[in-house]
């Protein structure tokens, strides 16, 4: 397999498989971290001090330690310390552990963005809702949520683009995402060995994905331009 054209279909197939894993982790994280982050942000705004203190401690620990260490702890801790390797050695277990680590980590970052969004909305919106007899839930979902989304869109798009790239950290616990797939050809895989270009080629996947996301975010921002 020495010519580039012979290598190309094999490499692309392998990178596609890896990128599927990258995307899976990305979407699962997003689906889990957005609602969890919203709950955490409510908690940090709660009037009940123990909840507030606990969540602020959690946010401090999660934001204050590297995601890579969190991945290692979540994947290896059950087996090493509890003597119960709940995740198992297979791919599904590694994915599940990665997803848990990413959801917790990103929920903490999201929660701070959400909190900022919530407190930036003038109190008058709450009061206007209250005097019209609305419940707190109705006020949040019918009045504040959309205004909050409009305000947090720019920082969220930042965080989400970072998430796409951060998924590559999961290779520390051998989740076979796209960079792992690209790197495999450097050492030798499927009859192609010592090929450097697949690793660099993975950048194209990230770029394409983030390009698409940027377009989506721009579109969302334009859609919300109808009000101020």
């Amino acid at each position: 397999m020495d010519t580039f054209l012979e290598q190309l279909p094999i490499v692309i197939h392998s990178l596609n498989t890896g990128f599927l894993q990258t995307m899976k982790l990305f979407f699962v994280t997003l689906l889990g971290a957005v609602p969890l982050g919203l709950l955490i942000s409510f908690g940090t705004l709660s009037e009940f001090a123990p909840v507030r203190v606990f969540l602020n401690l959690l946010i401090w620990v999660v934001r204050g330690t590297p995601l890579m260490i969190q991945l290692l702890i979540i994947y290896y801790f059950p087996g090493l310390v509890l003597k119960n390797p709940v995740w198992g050695g297979g791919e599904a277990g590694r994915f599940a552990a990665s997803a848990v680590a990413f959801v917790i980590n990103y929920a903490c970052y999201f929660s701070e963005i959400f909190r900022g969004g919530i407190i930036s909305i003038p109190l008058g919106q709450d009061e206007a809702g209250m005097v019209l007899g609305m419940t707190k839930t109705q006020i949040f979902f019918r009045i504040k949520l959309l205004q909050m989304i409009k305000r947090i869109l720019p920082p969220m798009s930042n965080e989400i683009l970072t998430l796409v790239k951060d998924t590559s950290l999961a290779r520390i616990i051998a989740l076979q995402e796209v960079i792992w797939a690209g790197q495999a050809f450097m050492k030798g895989s499927q009859g192609i060995s010592g090929a450097i270009w697949p690793l660099f080629f993975t950048a194209v996947y990230y770029l394409a994905c983030n390009g698409l996301l940027t377009l989506l975010f721009n579109r969302a921002e334009r859609k919300l331009e109808y009000f101020r």
Binding site: P122, Q125, E127, A128, V131, G133, I143, Q147, F227, R228
Partner: peptide
Amino acid sequence: KNRLHFGMVFQAFHLFPQ
């Protein structure tokens, strides 16, 4: 419930912008 006996118009309107 009891709030609805009163209507309120604020100095700064507080209309819902969306």
